[in-house]
């Protein structure tokens, strides 16, 4: 199926990026494992969709695809929250730097 091929190619690409970022030390080992598991998980789900049906039944949704969508949305919201917090702390850091520069220039 074409969709499967596309998803797998993309997942492999994303996986290689995660490994590369880990190699040049921009991702920590924990972050690399997180992204690695995520993309490997995506590949497994695409290749063997039946497992999602099995898990979905255990969890209480009927279709496997529904479960995947639910979990993805939760994950996306969580990542957005983390990004928001990160951006806010960056904002605060920038202000600190700008303030320090303004004060130093005057001394």
């Amino acid at each position: 199926m074409l969709l499967q091929v596309i998803v797998i190619i993309f997942a492999l690409f994303a996986l290689s990026r995660a490994v590369l970022r880990f190699k040049d030390k921009r991702l920590s080992i924990g972050e690399m494992i997180f992204w690695g598991l995520l993309w490997i998980g995506a590949m497994v789900v695409v290749l063997v969709p039946q497992i999602t049906v099995f898990i979905a039944k255990e969890v209480g949704t009927t279709r496997g695809a529904d479960l995947v969508v639910y979990l993805s949305i939760i994950l996306i919201f969580y990542l957005m929250f983390k990004l928001y917090v990160r951006i806010d702390s960056l904002r605060s850091d920038i202000t600190t730097v700008v303030r320090e520069m303004a004060l130093r220039k005057k001394k």
């Binding site: 920038i94 202000t95 700008v98 303030r99 520069m101 303004a102 004060l103 005057k106």
Partner: peptide, 13 residues
């Protein structure tokens, strides 16, 4: 005495 923020950070800052 003039101080200068090199980029705009807002009135609070």
């Amino acid at each position: 005495v003039a101080l200068q923020h090199i980029v705009n950070r807002g009135q609070g800052a």
